[in-house]
């Protein structure tokens, strides 16, 4: 009877503290914060050398921007209006999928929906 109670207790203890236990085994993660690498293109004369939106905004919202642009271009034909949000435009600075996109995406466990290997449309412009 007592044995059963202890077993039940331990089972729940392990399940509830799993994140703590796993990270105790796995060790340090904070120092492994993702460092995406940029290869900035030279902006043409007279154009400011920066992203299409502010960086913090892009970090949080780039997926919504890309999705909106895709729908507007592919379904509604507004290619000119959304030209600055085209993935080709992104590629001018964010050239390397493995060095840029995947750094944060694999850290967060999210798959970018752009590329062909997950039902997306685009070829990764570099090797994975």
């Amino acid at each position: 009877m007592k044995m059963k109670a202890i077993t039940a207790f331990l089972v729940f203890l392990v399940i509830l503290t799993l994140p703590f236990l796993v990270s105790a085994v796995n060790g340090d993660i904070l120092s492994q914060a993702p460092q995406p690498k940029l290869e900035k293109a030279k902006a043409p004369a007279g154009v400011e050398n920066k992203c299409v939106e502010e960086v913090p905004y892009m970090r949080a919202n780039h997926m919504n921007i890309l999705k909106t642009a895709r729908v507007q271009v592919v379904r509604n034909g507004l290619r000119e209006k959304y030209k600055k949000y085209s993935l080709e435009n992104c590629f001018t600075c964010h050239r390397n999928r493995a060095e840029f996109c995947d750094k944060c995406h694999s850290y967060a466990g999210v798959e970018p929906g752009c590329f062909g290997d997950r039902g997306g449309c685009h070829y990764a412009n570099t090797k994975k």
């Binding site: 990270s23 993660i29 904070l30 914060a33 993702p34 913090p56 970090r59 949080a60 919202n61 997926m63 919504n64 944060c104 850290y107 967060a108 999210v110």
Partner: peptide, 12 residues
């Protein structure tokens, strides 16, 4: 949207 990398850093 919030920056989920920061969220993960915070939670970790």
């Amino acid at each position: 949207r919030t920056d989920i990398i920061k969220v993960k850093q915070f939670v970790m």
